[in-house]
Measured scan of single mutants.
Amino acid sequence: AEEIWQQSVIGDYLARFKNDRVKALKAMEMTWNNMEKKEKLMWIKKAAED
């Protein structure tokens, strides 16, 4: 689920960090860890469908 979420937001994060992939990935990891369980559930369901 986290991978699907990352694939959907990586472009936004890379743009925000001027294509600094290391910073973008760290920010994504922090965002994922801070997400509410119900927000993650949507992505977990999406992962299950694929």
Results as ranks from 00 to 15, higher is better:
N33Q: 12
E36Q: 09
V9W: 03
K23G: 09
T31Q: 09
A1H: 03
W5T: 00
G11M: 12
N34D: 09
K45M: 10
L25C: 12
N33E: 12
A47F: 11
K46F: 09
M35C: 02
A24S: 04
W5H: 00
A24Q: 01
I4Q: 07
L14N: 02
D50H: 15
M28S: 01
S8L: 08
N19P: 06
E49A: 11
V9Y: 03
M35W: 02
I4D: 03
A47P: 02
R21P: 08
R21T: 11
A15V: 12
I10R: 03
S8H: 13
K40C: 03
M42V: 13
L25Y: 13
R16G: 04
R21K: 12
I44E: 15
M35S: 01
D12V: 07
A47L: 07
M30W: 11
I44L: 10
V9N: 05
Q6H: 06
Q7Y: 05
Q6N: 07
E36T: 14
G11E: 11
N34A: 12
A24Y: 01
K38C: 14
G11Y: 09
D20R: 01
K45R: 07
W5S: 01
V9R: 03
K26L: 12
D20T: 01
V22Y: 09
K23A: 15
Y13G: 00
L25A: 09
E3W: 14
V9D: 00
Q7W: 08
N19E: 08
N19R: 04
G11H: 13
D12L: 07
E29Q: 12
R16D: 06
N33A: 14
K23N: 08
L41H: 06
V9Q: 04
M42L: 13
K46W: 07
W32V: 00
A24L: 02
R16T: 06
A15N: 08
F17M: 06
R21W: 14
E39L: 05
E2D: 05
A24W: 02
E39F: 04
Q6D: 01
L14S: 02
K18N: 15
M35K: 01
W32T: 00
I44P: 03
A1N: 03
K18L: 10
E2C: 11
K46E: 09
A15H: 10
D20M: 02
A15W: 08
Q7T: 09
L41G: 06
D20V: 03
I4V: 10
M28A: 03
K23H: 07
K45L: 11
E49P: 05
A48K: 12
E3P: 05
E2K: 12
R16Y: 08
T31S: 08
A27P: 00
W5E: 01
L14M: 09
A48I: 13
I44Q: 13
E36F: 03
A24E: 01
A48T: 11
E36A: 12
K40H: 03
S8G: 04
A24V: 05
A1P: 08
L14F: 03
M28L: 06
R21S: 08
V22D: 13
Y13C: 03
A48W: 12
K18A: 12
W5R: 01
Y13S: 00
A47H: 06
I4W: 10
L41S: 06
K26S: 09
I10W: 09
G11K: 13
W43E: 03
K40S: 01
D12E: 15
L41N: 08
F17G: 01
I44T: 05
D50T: 14
L25D: 05
K23D: 06
A15G: 10
N34V: 05
A1W: 08
V9G: 01
I10N: 02
E29C: 05
A24K: 00
M28F: 01
M30E: 15
A1Q: 03
Y13D: 00
D50M: 15
I44R: 04
V22P: 06
W43Y: 04
A48L: 15
N33K: 11
M28K: 00
E3K: 14
D20S: 04
L41E: 15
R16W: 07
M30Y: 11
W32L: 00
E49I: 09
N19F: 09
K46I: 11
W43R: 02
Q6F: 09
K45D: 13
F17A: 06
V9P: 01
E36K: 07
